[in-house]
Amino acid sequence: MIRFENIGLRYGLGPEVLRDVDFHLVPGSFHFLTGPSGAGKTSLLRMLFMSLRPSRGLIHLFGQNCSDLPSSERADLRRRIGIVFQDFRLLDHLTTWENVALPLRVFGESEASYRDDVTDLLKWVGLGARMTAYPEVLSGGEKQRAAIARAVIGKPELLLADEPTGNVDPAMANRLLRLFIELNRLGTSVIIATHDFQLMDQCDAPRLVLHEGHLEIR
C-alpha cells in the first residue's frame, strides 16, 4: 500500500534531512513512527500525505507513483488518507459537527446522506454532547478527538496522526490509542508519529525509527 524507494529529502540547499529511506507497508498495518525531535517525523508524514515532494526517490501510494500525478489525482489520493495534526487544525467558525462533516461536504456528498454517520461517529468518540460547540470552547482532548473523527469520517484506508497525544494527559492518551487500535481493527492502516515511549509500550506494534536521517523498522 505504501512503498518508499530510496527517498532523500533536503530543504533548499541544506543537508539531507532524510537519506535513503526504504520501506513497504501492507494494508491493515499499524505502525509507530518515532525518533528524536527534528529527526524528520513530520517531514515523512508530509511526504506520505503528498504535501511535500522528496528531493529524490520514488513514493508509491495505493499502487500509484506520486511523483508526476496531476493535482486533481493527488486530491483523489488524499481522500483515501486521513490525517490528524498535532495542532488539530479545526476551523474556528464551524461547530464540532460541521468540522467533522467537512471532508464529506468537500467530497460533494449531500448533508442528508451523512448526517447520521457524523452524529454516530461523534458519539463514538465521546463528543455526543459537544456537537454544536465551537472549537474555542473545547478542551485539548475534545479537540483531538474531533480532529480524529474528521480524519476518519471519510473511511480512509490510511490514517496518519502527528503527535496525537502531545496535548493530552496520559489517561486521554490511552483512550485515543484505544480509538486508533479500534480503527485499525476495522481495516484502516494507521501510522502514529510520536516520541511518547509510554504510549508505544502499551501496544505491540512495529516502530519506524528515524535517526540521523535514516529509517529502520524495529
Partner: peptide
C-alpha cells in the same frame, strides 16, 4: 488555514 485544511481533507483546487 482554511485553504490548508480543505487541501488536506482532499478538496480539489
Amino acid at each position: 488555514e482554511i485553504i490548508e485544511v480543505l487541501h488536506f481533507v482532499g478538496a480539489r483546487e
